[in-house]
């Protein structure tokens, strides 16, 4: 199978040479008795898109949810190991989870706008952060919507319900909402899997643009998508990290037999 990788920036540093913005060290996760992840170590380079691929149930989403500690919300989930971000272990007891999540934002599989207006959706994050200045909020809303390539489509209906937007627009709204609190890192959990091909390609273009300002980690089970949008790709299988390399290397010349089997469609 041929994969079309983004050839614009072929020259990539080797993973050993990069200075990671987020680094997972020996992350293991249990759901009750069941071990979902085992000793994951992963470096996420700054201003790049890192894709996490693997068959269903391999722990991709679980890993993603470790990075902004969304797993805390799942009853019976237990995380061991370290996630280092800005020289701090995110699992240290003195970490303020709420402010951590403002720095590491998240976009979910299914578009999940609040049942409020477009404007209120974007303003949600800044408002709970304590911002009340109307002009500043207006500015943030406009900026975020522009960054998410949605401004032209919604500028005349900022105060109509977000639920009236199409699925693709809703997902870009969710991205804009995540951007409104100015995160460093954006986690995306299969952000285009519930969308039609056109909406999907818009999201992919957007992800490509976002890496100018943000570090993006995207979970996907669509390998073509991973090849198209990402700079680095990690392959997870049965809760273990099998391979992590620059995207074109992983797809064209993988080191591990298992990776090759998966990307050529022999299993999964």
């Amino acid at each position: 199978m041929e994969f079309e990788t983004n050839s614009k920036d072929k020259e990539r540093k080797k993973l050993e040479e990069i200075d990671p913005v987020v680094e997972a060290k020996n992350i293991s996760v249990w759901y009750g008795e069941e071990k979902a992840l085992e000793n994951i170590g992963l470096k996420v380079p700054k201003n790049n898109v890192t894709a996490i691929i693997g068959p269903s149930g391999c722990g991709k989403s679980t890993f993603l949810r470790c990075i902004n500690r969304m797993n805390d919300l799942i009853e019976g989930a237990k995380v061991e190991g370290k996630i280092v971000y800005k020289d701090k272990n995110l699992y240290d007891p003195d970490i303020d989870v709420a402010s951590l999540r403002r720095k590491i934002g998240m976009v979910f599989q299914k578009p999940n706008p609040f049942p409020k207006s477009v404007y209120e959706n974007i303003a949600y994050g800044p408002k709970i952060g304590g911002m009340n200045d109307k002009e500043e909020l207006d500015e943030i809303v406009e900026e975020s919507l522009k960054d998410a390539a949605l401004w032209d489509e919604v500028k005349n209906r900022l105060h109509s319900p977000a639920m009236d937007l199409s699925g693709g627009q809703q997902q870009r709204l969710c991205i804009a909402r995540a951007l409104a609190v100015e995160p460093d890192v954006l986690l995306m959990d299969e952000p285009a899997s519930a969308l039609d091909p056109i909406a999907m390609s818009k999201i992919e273009d957007l992800i490509y643009d976002l890496k100018q300002d943000y570090t993006v980690i995207i979970v996907t089970h669509n390998m073509q998508q991973a090849a198209r949008v990402s700079d680095y790709t990690a392959f997870l299988f049965m809760g273990k990290l099998i391979e992590h390399s620059p995207t074109e290397k992983l797809f064209e010349n993988p080191d591990k037999k298992k990776t090759e089997d998966y990307i050529t469609g022999r299993f999964g």
Binding site: L73, R101, R102, N112, P113, F114, Y124, G125, K127, I128
Partner: peptide, 21 residues
């Protein structure tokens, strides 16, 4: 649950999530 997740992921505390979302 999606709505709660969205709110938590924006850095809202539990009470902020309940109150606003």
């Amino acid at each position: 649950k999606d709505i709660r997740d969205a709110s938590f992921a924006m850095g809202a505390t539990r009470w902020q999530t309940i109150r606003n979302a």
